[in-house]
């Protein structure tokens, strides 16, 4: 199991245009839909927004990790985006967001390695060095490399 199994190059976007949290979530969900990870886009977006209402996913350091768990997700996956403009996300540290990790979590693969991988990627975002590295990335390969180098083993 490798990072690219959940975060592949075609789901890493630079220069996302959206200027609000909602628009960004919709925009990135479109990508998941196009790539066949969602059976029902609206249902998935609803799950993500519900999670946002529960408490913010802006974890500080200009990062947000919106996520939705729904049986309309066929396979767990991540979309990563860097935004052109800073987006307000009511973050824990009150800073705006420019790095977004949208997680699609399938109800079907509860014990499967994908979830574990998602968890490991999320916990890596607590590492300041990783965040610093992500802010510097300019290509999809570099993003994947950052998560790979940190010894994600399964």
């Amino acid at each position: 199991m490798e990072v690219k199994d959940v975060l592949s190059k075609d789901r890493i976007i630079f220069n996302l245009d959206s200027d609000t949290k909602e628009k960004a979530i919709v925009e990135l969900s479109n990508i998941l839909m196009e790539q066949g990870f969602l059976l029902n886009k609206d249902e998935y977006i609803k799950a993500v927004l519900q999670r946002e209402n529960h408490s913010t996913t802006g974890i500080g350091n200009n990062i947000a990790i919106p996520h939705g768990k729904s049986n309309s997700v066929t396979k767990s996956a991540i979309v990563f985006a860097k935004t052109k403009k800073d987006i307000e996300w009511e973050s824990l540290d009150e800073k705006p967001v420019n790095l977004i990790f949208l997680l699609a979590i399938s109800e079907l693969d509860q014990t499967n390695g994908h979830l574990r991988l998602l968890s490991q990627i999320a916990s890596k975002l607590m590492d300041d060095d990783i965040v610093l590295g992500l802010q510097k990335t300019q290509t999809a390969d570099e993003v994947i490399k950052i998560f790979n180098e940190g010894d994600i083993e399964l």
Binding site: R51, H54, T57, I59, I65, H67, K69, L103, I105, L115, L118, S119, Q120, A122, S123, K124, L125, M126, D127
Partner: peptide, 18 residues
């Protein structure tokens, strides 16, 4: 956390670091 995928593990990692 509710979803059990992201925040659970970020919180664990933050506590260890702290």
């Amino acid at each position: 956390c509710a979803t059990g995928v992201a925040h659970t593990f970020m919180a664990a990692s933050a506590l260890k670091k702290g």
